[in-house]
Amino acid sequence: MAYAGSAVLEGDAAAFAAAVRSLINNPQFSDVTFVVGRERQEVFAHRCILACRCQAFQGMFSQPQPDAQEPWAPQAPLVLSHVQPEVFLAVLEFLYTNSVTLNSFMALEVLTSAVEYGLDDLRKAAVTYRQTDLQEHCLVFVEDRTREVVQTRSFHELSAAALVAVLRSDRLAIDEPDLIQAVREWAHVSSAVLERPVAEVAAGPVRELRLPLLSPRELAALESHNQRDPLIPVECIAEAWKCHALRKGSGAPSRLCQRRRGTQPREHHGYLE
């Protein structure tokens, strides 16, 4: 409550920020310890700061501790094996100081953690940070680890536009039948989330699948599967069959006849090129 004649006096903002920053990963007065990453690095923090800045941590710390004598008693270390130490430290930096130091090598992982912890401002910062570089870094990450990436929750949560950008890459390290199955799984997840038909949510991405790369046997199996679980437009499958019938790539757009880095060789690939 402000009284007549009162005034707000502000101290040195830089000194205050530096004092709070000094608490990041500082064991002094820390009351929670995290064991982070495969390296099992210890990271020290303060529950009051994390809880007031992040609802995810507030919920975590509100859970009763069986061995604790009082609510704020020190607890056993919390293991976070799925996140890299430098990424978690970046999250802490943001929670303590409302700013974060990013580079292109960790921006994607910070973005993932920001989504996981519900930190919308940090998510926006990670996306905004040299957005073109971030997109390129994300794509390189997917290209280098395609088989692992398509099995993750993050892949299933991609937007249709983002998935189209990924599927246009020639450097995906995965064979086309496996990629088609990954897109099918993505489509079913998106269909459930958006409450729209599978074929509708997948309309854009499926047109980036390179069906002419499939052998006749694989294409026939795909066509049979597609009758039970409609995903791919009939005309796309027809274009692929046309390539086989004509023994050349003129039955489909040229980009769909281009082998990816992970494409396994098939007898007919020679006449697609």
Rank of each mutant, 00 (worst) to 15 (best):
A2I: 04
L9Y: 06
L9W: 04
G11V: 11
A15K: 14
F16Y: 14
F16Q: 05
A17L: 14
N25S: 10
Q28E: 14
V36I: 14
E39S: 15
E39M: 02
R40M: 10
A45N: 08
H46W: 08
C48Y: 11
L50A: 05
A51N: 03
R53C: 14
Q55Y: 04
F57Q: 07
S62F: 01
A68M: 12
E70H: 14
W72V: 00
A73W: 05
A73F: 07
A73H: 12
P74K: 11
A76D: 13
V83M: 14
Q84C: 03
E86M: 10
F88Q: 04
L89D: 06
Y96P: 02
Y96V: 05
N98F: 06
V100Q: 13
M106W: 00
V110Q: 04
T112E: 12
Y117A: 09
D120G: 00
D121C: 05
L122M: 09
L122R: 09
A126T: 02
A126L: 09
V127I: 14
V127E: 14
T128E: 09
T132K: 15
T132G: 06
L134A: 15
L134C: 07
H137T: 15
T146R: 01
T146Q: 01
T146C: 07
R147Y: 00
R147D: 00
V149C: 04
T152C: 03
F155V: 15
E157I: 01
A160K: 09
V164Y: 04
V164P: 08
L167D: 09
L179T: 02
I180F: 02
I180V: 15
A182L: 08
V183S: 11
R184L: 07
E185H: 12
W186Q: 06
A187V: 01
H188G: 01
V193Q: 15
E195F: 03
V201D: 12
A202K: 12
A203M: 04
E208A: 08
P212R: 10
L213T: 08
L214W: 12
S215M: 07
P216K: 10
R217K: 13
R217N: 03
A220S: 13
A220K: 12
A220H: 12
L222V: 13
L222M: 03
S224F: 02
S224G: 04
E235T: 11
C243Y: 06
R247A: 13
R247G: 03
G249I: 12
S250G: 08
G251Y: 08
A252N: 09
Q258E: 14
R260Y: 13
G262M: 10
